[in-house]
Structures are given as structure tokens and as C-alpha cells.
Design a binder for these strands. Structure first.
Lengths: 233, 233
DNA sequence: AAGTGGTCTAGACCACCCT
DNA sequence: GGGTGGTCTAGACCACTTT
């Protein structure tokens, strides 16, 4: 463990195993004494455990074991990570990559001038070799010089990090449903009239620069979107 | 402002307005001096601002203004809060409330014995008076004695807090898509074959006790699900 | 009154970046 | 080497709950 509060966190977690829900933990000052660290360090460890929903603190009473049924917050994950977590083998077929002038709607989403150079990708995402998702991606061309000549069937976020020193940090997403028909139904290999889950994503790097706009259309019979949200913080 | 770090947060935010993205903030020690607080207090304020995506820190270099395009993380919200945020008037029609023995599937979700007493609610949620969502809710009866006699067309989380001292704190959700037909298509007033967004939610209180299992079916032509996720923390 | 978690302080050292 | 944010310390006082 690099840092003390992570080590303390693990120790507390160990000593918690076997305790009933609502059982009290030792008080903070005692934990600090036991692990020979300052109370602040103990508090940082406890704060992380509380954020994950493993313990809860009550002012004036103490800190207690939570029932720990609904656990950690969800993170932004890539298709590749997502499929691996589901026990399926991810795959990608690049359908198209082109540089085009930005249509007004796309320019607005990427906060560029209308007509700016945009990279437009179309990819079919596979799970265990079968079509799972059709995705379109729009990128500001100036942020990714020479992207067309990269291997675009590899995870894109990896290419961004390796070749452009850019790490996607957060994204706002809109999830909706629609009926499939025409070309996309064909690509996903489902009959017209089937349901699809649509995820529109606008992502930024850690500096807050908009780095990607994307639309993913998932087969609803094979995919659902999972997330954990908390109310307070 | 009750606590100093919140006040410092507001002060920093004020002085940031007008700065360009990537402009450096004063260093932490200087901010502490300026606002006559300790560096720890400044750091707590900065940490909150970073979590919200308004600034970013680089070890060894400094703290900088983020472009602030993609903002705060999403929180667990109720239908009522959600509709108000969208500028629509929320409404509820209670269709049914009954106490029944738990079916095995529902019992498993609520982590109760099969056959335990369950409260089952069906509600039609309205936006500006028009059907938006059909929801079914299952609750452990022992946690909500006498719920049947409450006003169940008011926001449920409010009833939970006021009458049962129970605050929903976090939830795991699965979002999927399906085709509407039969009774639910009728209730939502859409033709059979329309697309719907389905949200299945399992919620717990701050102690980690499972307090609710619910399934909400939204008209896809009127609703999308919005969330912001971050990759690291 | 005693005990708990919540906030705040002043200061130290570390890891990392830049020149 | 000098400056930055990241971690940690020892101690203080506060708000709240329980006895």
C-alpha cells in the first residue's frame, strides 16, 4: 500500500469481516492508537469506506457497519471494459473513418465552429463475435492529428492516451430507447421493429476540454445499462 | 455558510469567474493566507471544486481552471425532482396498493424469505397531466407499517422520511429497452409496438438496508435518462 | 458531564515538475 | 534547487447524543 490511509482502510475492513450490520466500530481515536497513525489518517480511511457504503457514521453516537448490499459507485467504463466485466469477449469492426466538415448540430455538441474539421468513425462492436452495438463517434480533428492511420479496432481510449496524451475523465450521457429499422437493424442482425437502447455520450478530459461526442445503439435483447447512484454525495 | 471550507469554496469560485480555462489559480499556501484559514481548509474547498469538475490539480505544477463544460456528478433523484428539473409538472395516479406474500423473485431482490409480507404498489406517473411512466414498487411490509393508509400519490421518499425516518441513500439501477404492448401500452396511451425505457431500481438507506425494489417503464418518445459519470473518483 | 464524530489549525515531510 | 500539490501529524474546539 503506497499510502497509510489505504493501508488503514484495509486493516479496518479486515477487522470488520464477521461483524453484524449495525455493529459499532471502535471509535476514531482508538483506531488511530491501534494502527499508530493520526486521527486524520483514520478519518480519511473511514470516509472512503463510507462513500463506498460499507460503513455509516452518526454524529455523537459512533461509526457502524452497513449492511453492504448496494456497493460502490459506478464509473465511466469503455465498451471493452464493460464486456470483460460481463464475461464476454469484446471485438470491433471498423466500418468507416473519414474527415469531414462539422454539421451544425455536431459542431454545437463539440463546441466548435460549424464547418470545422471533424473525424467521423463508425464501428460495429461485437460480444463473443456477435453484433452488440453500432456506434458513431465524432472527434475534433485538431486534437487527434493522424488518427486515421492508427489501428482503430483497438480500444479508442487507449489510443487517445498512448498517442495523444489525453485521458477521458468524465462524460455526460443521455440514455433513450428506440425502434430499430433499415441499415442499423441489418448491421445488428435483428428484425426491424426490435427495441434498442441508445446512449449518447459527450466526454471531456481532466482539463474539461470536450474530447468526444458519440452515439451507441445497443441491441436491447442482449444489453442493459447498469449504474449505482447515491443521493447525497 | 456554516463551515469555513464552504465559504472558502464560494470565495474561490467568485475570484475564478472571468478566468480563462487552464489559467492557474493562486497556490494553496497563498489562498490560505488570503482567506486567513489553514491550508487543510483550502484543500477541502479545492477538493470539492475538483470533484465537481470546475478545477483540476497537477502535482508539482499547480491548480487550474477547468473548461467546466461537463459538470457535476449525477445524483439519485426521484421522479418528482426529475420532472421539476425538466420544467414539467409532476403528477401521480395510484392504481393499486396491496399486501401480498413475496414471490420468490421479488423476495430474492429484497433479500427476504419467500412468502414474506410485501407491499405492492402500482402508480401511473404524469408529466403536465399526460402519462409518462408506469411504475411498480415492492417494499418489505415490516419496514413500512400502515403505509396503505398514507397518501400514496405524494412523493414516496417524502413519506418514507416523514413517517418512517428512512432516507433512501443509494440505488443500483439497470436500464433497458423494450417494446410496449397490452395493458401498459394502453395505460401510457401509446400504440402497441412503441419503444419504452425500463429502469429497474434496488435502493438502500444509509445503513445499507434494502428498502425498495421498483420497475419503471417510461414512454421513450417523451423521456430519456441523463447522467454524468467520471472515470477516476 | 462524558463521549462521539465534524471541523480546523500550524507545521512537517514527500513526490513530482520545472528551470 | 525551488516551487507545487499530496500526505501525515498532534492537538484543539465544536455540535450532537447519551447517561
Amino acid at each position: 500500500m503506497q499510502v497509510k490511509h489505504e493501508w488503514v482502510r484495509e486493516e479496518i475492513l479486515q477487522n470488520m469481516s464477521g461483524l453484524e450490520p449495525d455493529a459499532p466500530l471502535p471509535q476514531e481515536r482508538e483506531l488511530a492508537e491501534r494502527y499508530q497513525v493520526s486521527r486524520s489518517t483514520v478519518r480519511q480511511a473511514l470516509k472512503n469506506l463510507a462513500t463506498e457504503g460499507r460503513i455509516y457514521a452518526v454524529r455523537g453516537r459512533g461509526t457502524f457497519v452497513a449492511s453492504q448490499r448496494i456497493s460502490k459507485d459506478s464509473r465511466l467504463t469503455s465498451f471493452t471494459e464493460d464486456m470483460i466485466a460481463r464475461g464476454q469477449r469484446p471485438g470491433t469492426r471498423l466500418l468507416q473513418v473519414e474527415q469531414v466538415p462539422a454539421a451544425p448540430e455536431i459542431a454545437a455538441k463539440l463546441e466548435l465552429e460549424s464547418g470545422s474539421a471533424i473525424l467521423h468513425l463508425e464501428r460495429l462492436r461485437l460480444a463473443d463475435g456477435f453484433p452488440m452495438c453500432f456506434e458513431e463517434i465524432w472527434l475534433p480533428a485538431h486534437m487527434y492529428p493522424g488518427l486515421q492511420h492508427q489501428d482503430l479496432e483497438r480500444p479508442l481510449y487507449g489510443v487517445f492516451a498512448a498517442s495523444y496524451n489525453l485521458r477521458i475523465d468524465r462524460a455526460e450521457q443521455q440514455i433513450s430507447a428506440q425502434i430499430l429499422k433499415g441499415r442499423i437493424a441489418d448491421l445488428l442482425n435483428v428484425p426491424p421493429g426490435s427495441a434498442a437502447l441508445v446512449v449518447v455520450r459527450r466526454s471531456s478530459d481532466e482539463k474539461g476540454r470536450i474530447a468526444e461526442y458519440a452515439k451507441s445503439i445497443y441491441r436491447a435483447d442482449r444489453y442493459d445499462f447498469q449504474l449505482t447512484v447515491s443521493r447525497s454525495g
